[in-house]
Amino acid sequence: MAFKSVKELLERSRETGREVWQLIMEEDANDRNVGTEDSFEKMRSMWKAMKASSDSYDPSLRSSSGLSGGDGHKVREYRQKCISGEFMGDVIAEAIGMAESNACMRCIVAAPTAGSCGVIPAVLIPYVNKYGTDEEKIVRGLFVSAGFGQIIAERAFIAGALGGCQAEIGSASAMAAAMLVYLQGGSPQQSASALAFALKSLLGLVCDPVAGLVEVPCVKRNVIGAVNAITSADMALAGIETMIPADEVIDAMRAVGAAMPSSLRETAEGGLAATPTGIEIAERMPVLK
């Protein structure tokens, strides 16, 4: 079974002297009754699928609603002028591009969901390009990310319909932050702090998709998830510790999600979906008769 808490995962790592990614891989192998090699190769295939999605980004594609497409390319063209620098320009372009590919019915890796599929690749691909990380390390990083995500799913939720966007983009951002800390050589405790920072900063984010589609504002929210992951990792790596422990932050996310009215949980009845423009867009969408 998955770890029930970040505390349990970190303690086990301390007690056994095994790395966090190893423990997570071993739990998965045990869960699915396969060898650890099988588990590792499956995670490698997730990385390859992410890369393939990114490489096949097509700026000419538009979603069937016409609301998404081409914006990732605009940022790519603009990257040298980015106020936040070229690295951040790549992060923004990757996040939007991946989320647009999803909206355009291309193949993506749900991480943890399809709506938040841009966050992890958006930090990982530019990171790998910058630091030249080898593939074994990348795959280990993805285990760290998925393992922390599994704890979030266990204690709270990862579906917008259950907990709002904080559960989707918030969880993806927290997973990405913990992974970045690992890739930079930070400690498991620093990964936990980064996870906590990322989730805290997106706490309360509602799920309010215009016309009920995974497009507006979902595509651009992948950007804040990715950027927030990087700043959270940097804070943790700088030595800042979270005041509220990671497990308690996850529990708070659950409590906030449970308190959200259903109009703000993917039903397209509140937030941006209920604005005059949101309603107008919804009214002109093609529907089945």
Binding site: A2, I24, C107, T113, A114, G115, I120, G149, A153
Partner: peptide, 19 residues
């Protein structure tokens, strides 16, 4: 939840429930 329900699945978008 299975680890590869968190990192994955590989799928055609846009929605895990609706697609």
């Amino acid at each position: 939840m299975n680890l590869f329900d968190i990192m994955g699945p590989v799928m055609v978008g846009p929605s895990s429930s609706h697609t």
